[in-house]
Computed example of a mutant assay.
Amino acid sequence: MTTNGGFLAGASPETLDALLNALRELNARQIRETQQHWRRTLPFADYIVDRWDKAKALGFSEGASVYDSCLVLGDVRVGENTWVGPFTLLDGSGGLDIGNNCSISAGVQIYTHDTVEWALSNGRVSAETAPVKIGDRCYIGPNVVISKGVTIGDGCVIGANSFVNRDIPGGVKAWGTPARVIGITCEKADSSD
């Protein structure tokens, strides 16, 4: 274990070993308790970092939660009661706005920039950015990738493993690579009566 001059600088090897053992014991206890209560396990940091506290620290709205394993970059706004799952990427370098009461599943990647032209130009052209907006009451399935400049309307379902590279209107189900509209949600069907 390296200390890099931090609060453990100058600690003895015995002290470092004791700390490492205490962390291992904490991890084992958290795994047992979470497995018994929720029937799942989490990465170590997700046991000790409160998801709601992390969301507050990032300026997310009331009731939002975000796993510690989520990478958050740039200007990201997340609405009330929105859940952001583990191993997600929220790239707000071009501006990212996620609405209220959304579920952003594990492994979702949302990009507001790309470096295609930067790479092709040997670094002479800047990265391109464009904002992404996800409306209220949206479910974004596991491992979805959303590219820069996309707007997803209110009340949408985006199916697992989809690639969203164009706008999706509100009240629809969409999936595929690239994602395409395949039906309407119950919300839209109820409102069309």
Rank of each mutant, 00 (worst) to 15 (best):
1 M>L: 13
2 T>I: 10
4 N>K: 10
4 N>Q: 09
4 N>F: 15
5 G>E: 12
6 G>K: 02
8 L>Q: 08
9 A>R: 09
10 G>M: 08
12 S>W: 13
15 T>P: 01
16 L>P: 04
19 L>G: 12
20 L>R: 12
20 L>I: 10
20 L>D: 05
21 N>Q: 14
30 Q>D: 08
35 Q>P: 00
35 Q>L: 14
38 W>E: 14
41 T>N: 08
47 Y>N: 05
48 I>G: 01
48 I>P: 04
48 I>T: 07
49 V>P: 00
50 D>E: 10
51 R>E: 14
53 D>W: 03
56 K>F: 04
57 A>F: 06
58 L>R: 03
59 G>S: 03
59 G>N: 06
60 F>L: 09
61 S>N: 07
62 E>N: 11
65 S>N: 14
67 Y>P: 00
67 Y>F: 14
68 D>A: 15
70 C>N: 06
71 L>P: 00
72 V>M: 05
73 L>A: 02
74 G>I: 00
76 V>G: 11
77 R>M: 07
77 R>I: 08
78 V>H: 07
78 V>S: 01
78 V>N: 06
80 E>Y: 04
83 W>D: 14
86 P>G: 14
90 L>S: 05
92 G>H: 11
97 D>F: 03
99 G>S: 05
100 N>M: 03
102 C>N: 09
103 S>R: 04
104 I>V: 15
112 T>K: 02
113 H>A: 14
114 D>H: 08
115 T>N: 13
117 E>T: 02
118 W>H: 15
119 A>I: 13
124 R>Q: 14
124 R>G: 03
126 S>H: 06
127 A>E: 10
131 P>F: 06
131 P>L: 05
132 V>Q: 08
132 V>E: 12
132 V>M: 09
132 V>A: 09
136 D>I: 05
137 R>Y: 15
138 C>H: 06
139 Y>A: 02
139 Y>K: 00
139 Y>Q: 09
141 G>F: 01
146 I>E: 05
148 K>F: 06
150 V>L: 02
151 T>L: 00
153 G>T: 08
153 G>A: 01
155 G>Q: 11
156 C>A: 02
157 V>T: 12
162 S>A: 15
168 I>N: 04
170 G>C: 05
172 V>Q: 11
173 K>Y: 02
175 W>Q: 11
178 P>Y: 06
179 A>M: 10
179 A>K: 05
181 V>N: 03
181 V>S: 05
181 V>W: 01
182 I>Y: 03
182 I>E: 11
183 G>R: 04
183 G>N: 07
185 T>F: 08
191 S>P: 07
